[in-house]
Each structure stands twice: as C-alpha cells, then as structure tokens.
C-alpha cells in the first residue's frame, strides 16, 4: 500500500527520507534493550503476518498497515521493525525498492512513533472500552498520516505527480476506516486479556539491561 518503488521519487526526496530513517532507526535501536530484541522481532512478525490478511471494507478490501498498534506496543522500536520488514519485502517479493527504503520507512514508521509517544500514556490503566477508542484513534490517525506522507513524497518529487498524489490520498480513506475498527477491537481485546502488553513501553526501557561488562560493546549503552 505504501511501497513506493525505485525510480519514481526525486533524489532530494530520497536523500531526505534516508536521513530521517537513519535518525529514527538509530533512536529506536538505542531505546530497545538487548533483552527486548526477541520481543520486538517476534511481535513485528505478528504484525506482518496479520497485514497479509485482506480485510473487507465496503466494496473493496484492504491490507492493514498496523503501524499505529506497533507504536502503542513497541514505541521507539517501530522504526527498526518497519525498516526490517520493508527490507525483507523488497528482497523476497520485490515490493518497494532499495533507494526508497528510507522514504518508505519514514512514511510508515514516523506516524507509528508519533502515535506511540502521544497516545500510549492514555492507555495506562484504561478500561477495555477506552483502550479500544484510543486504539481506533491511533489506527485512523496513523493511516491518514501515512497517506499524507506518501502523497507529499510524490508531490515534492515532481509537480506533475500532484494530481496522482491527490488520488492516492483518497485511496487511504477505506484503509483508515478498516484500520480504525480492527485496531480498536484488537486494543480492547489486549486490554482485557493482556493489559501489560499495551501498558506502555517507557517503563520497560528504563530498566537497565543486565549486560555483564566483559561482553558489553563500546558505544552500545541501552
């Protein structure tokens, strides 16, 4: 849905995307503790697996982005997780491209990161219904932001892309609807079944990782 291939965007847009993506990935990697790597990786696999399911919305069907829920559950790790997912899709299936890895990562991960930072405090101690509403808001907002970023990447690359960028933005409307409902129900479910899963990522990161000094790598402070 948001996989811009190689050969479409202008070089300044590609470079800008790459710089932002490197910053986001660096920030994310510094914020995840070494003991959290399996959690982030396997949760990311879960998100990628469910995003392959076609969800009916009105006459069409959509594939969920799930970046809003990722932001709520893994917070800053959303940048590295999305980047890894996009690398695999580009290599294994030919979705997206290599030069556009940066732009595509920013388009999907930045809204997720913002949702995580702004909305996850609202989930602490929330009832399932309220958690569901926050989840729905995160889902819809992230999809809308991603649509806006994709359209902006196209429009900034060439002025003749502007009409297409407007249409691209419209195609994100059904996705935002489906994403809001499915994410909302998923967050309400998690609030009932596993409240600690959506209790926020900040306190966990604050715990220092138990790395024995003998094997700690220089510059790898959690």
């Amino acid at each position: 849905m948001a996989h811009i291939p190689d050969g479409v965007l202008s070089v300044p847009v590609l470079a800008g995307g790459a710089v932002l993506a490197v910053a986001g990935i660096g920030y994310g990697l510094r914020r995840i503790g070494e003991e959290e790597i399996p959690k982030v990786a396997i949760l990311a696999c879960g998100f990628f697996a469910v995003s392959l399911v076609a969800i009916p919305v009105g006459p069409s069907s959509v594939h969920l982005l799930l970046s809003g829920l990722m932001g709520l559950m893994i917070g800053p790790a959303v940048f590295p997780a999305v980047f890894v997912g996009l690398v695999l899709q580009a290599l294994l299936f030919g979705f997206g491209g290599l030069t556009t890895l940066g732009v595509n990562t920013v388009n999907i991960a930045l809204p997720g990161l913002l949702c995580g930072l702004l909305l996850s405090p609202l989930l602490r101690g929330a009832s399932p219904a309220r958690a569901g509403a926050v989840g729905a808001l995160a889902g819809a907002a992230c999809v809308a932001l991603t649509g806006g970023l994709v359209a902006a990447a196209l429009a900034l690359s060439a002025s003749e892309f502007v009409p297409s960028a407007r249409i691209v933005l419209l195609t994100y409307v059904p996705l935002a609807v489906g994403e809001a409902f499915v994410t909302g129900f998923a967050v309400a479910f998690l609030a009932r079944v596993r409240p600690e899963a959506i209790a926020g990522f900040a306190p966990k990161v604050a715990v220092p990782a138990p790395v024995p000094p003998a094997v700690a790598v220089a510059g790898e402070r959690p």
């Binding site: 399911v53 998923a186 998690l190």
Partner: peptide, 28 residues
C-alpha cells in the same frame, strides 16, 4: 456484518500478538 467482521479480525490480531509475546518470552 462489517462490525462483526472487523471485531473478529481485531480479536484475531490481538490473539496473534498475545501468542507472539508468549513465544518471544520462550525464545528469549
């Protein structure tokens, strides 16, 4: 039926994530 469909998929998504968390603990 849309609401029912979305709720069912939402629960499936939640369940996949719960299982992912449990598997991550075992793997870790």
């Amino acid at each position: 039926w849309s609401l029912h469909t979305w709720r069912t998929y939402g629960h499936m998504l939640g369940m996949v994530l719960v299982r992912a968390l449990e598997r991550a603990e075992r793997v870790s």
